[in-house]
Design a protein around this nucleic acid. Structure first.
Lengths: 204, 204
DNA sequence: GTCTATAAGTTGATAGAC
DNA sequence: GTCTATCAACTTATAGAC
């Protein structure tokens, strides 16, 4: 496999970064070609269908980067066998991931591979291809969460539900962090993860 | 107080509705004047600073509508004194509100007064006035949640943290519902509310 | 106060030179 | 395959008639 495809990759990376911060409509093709240094003609050579096709490639790229990031954090924070019970505890892993998000979104840094939430919010009703790309991304992320809950012996339906809850928490938390220009909301959420997802509980 | 201000109100209502679904950049002033039937000259008469000023008015309008809606649902679902303990239980109220959101965002209906999340996601980095309006809105919504937790005798810091968590859950849940074109994610979240926010718990 | 016509600039997209 | 020049449509905003 040769590395001829560099221009295409630069376009995808640049687009991912800009869309993430300013959304789909907020970024013009002129911004992308200026920032990437790749002329408009080349953009349309690699993406003949234009902006929408580039956006979908960027969403797909973000999907994979985020999946790898989740897996990495989960692997670094799994304690199979070290617990005093037989099953692994997913709570530490989820908490570690939200703490990571708080670091990444806290100080206006430029996180590689991050939220497609902004694009989803804008385009769900005006571009079905983009909506489908976002939907597929969300489902893939949630599968990882579901898998983690299943590993800890949650029932299948409960694992799926908790994965939805956790995903909503991260998307909402990222939105709050960006809006407040602070990592605090995500930190707060991370702190609450253990009590929110405690497995056994007794009603008061 | 006369009702001369009708044109201005129609503009704000129309803008709120369109921004909510398609975001700030996704809606042109032409869309707003076409949909509202109010000519562009009048728009600039009421909002001399243009689109940004209109958007901030729309955000403020949405803030108030949503606050009223939260209060209404909370009042309809509070059980002070009917419980077998002395304090009111906020969990039913929060659950009822998320069920309401699932109905409103489920079938692509046109909910009056709804998420500014899309605008916040797009413009937090490119318009400080809009970011501040969104931040103020989020803080006001969270105060209602905090108040509800305080009523149920949560400690002040814990009440604030749980309010952040609940708010993130709703914003994330709305994004998932819109992206999936389904009320299911919000329904799932509503179902999980009781176990997530159960007050007393025992570690396994 | 209400509305029309238009300005000045930007958008996504294309044609065609090299 | 790579890039430049240009297009028609659209954007926000304004000037000024009524």
């Amino acid at each position: 496999m040769k590395e001829k495809v560099k221009s295409k990759d630069v376009l995808i990376e640049t687009a991912s970064r800009l869309f993430k911060v300013r959304g789909y409509c907020g970024v013009g093709l002129n911004d992308i070609i200026e920032e990437s240094g790749i002329p408009k003609g080349s953009l349309y050579y690699y993406f003949p269908e234009g902006k929408e096709q580039l956006a979908i490639a960027a969403i797909d790229n973000t999907k994979k980067l985020v999946m790898a990031d989740i897996q990495r954090v989960f692997n670094e924070n799994s304690h199979v066998g070290t617990s005093n019970l037989s099953t692994s505890n997913p709570i530490d892993a989820f908490q570690a991931y939200v703490y990571e998000l708080s670091r990444v979104f806290g100080e206006g840094g430029d996180p590689i591979g991050s939220p497609i939430g902004t694009i989803a919010g804008e385009k769900h009703s005006t571009s079905e291809p983009i909506r489908l790309a976002c939907e597929a991304t969300f489902k893939d992320w949630q599968s990882i969460y579901t898998e983690k809950f299943l590993e800890a012996d949650y029932a299948e339906q409960q694992a799926k539900s908790l994965a939805t809850v956790f995903h909503a928490l991260t998307e909402g938390g990222i939105l709050l962090a960006l809006t407040m220009k602070s990592g605090k909301p995500l930190e707060t959420i991370a702190e609450q993860i253990p009590s929110l997802f405690a497995k056994e509980l007794v009603e008061k």
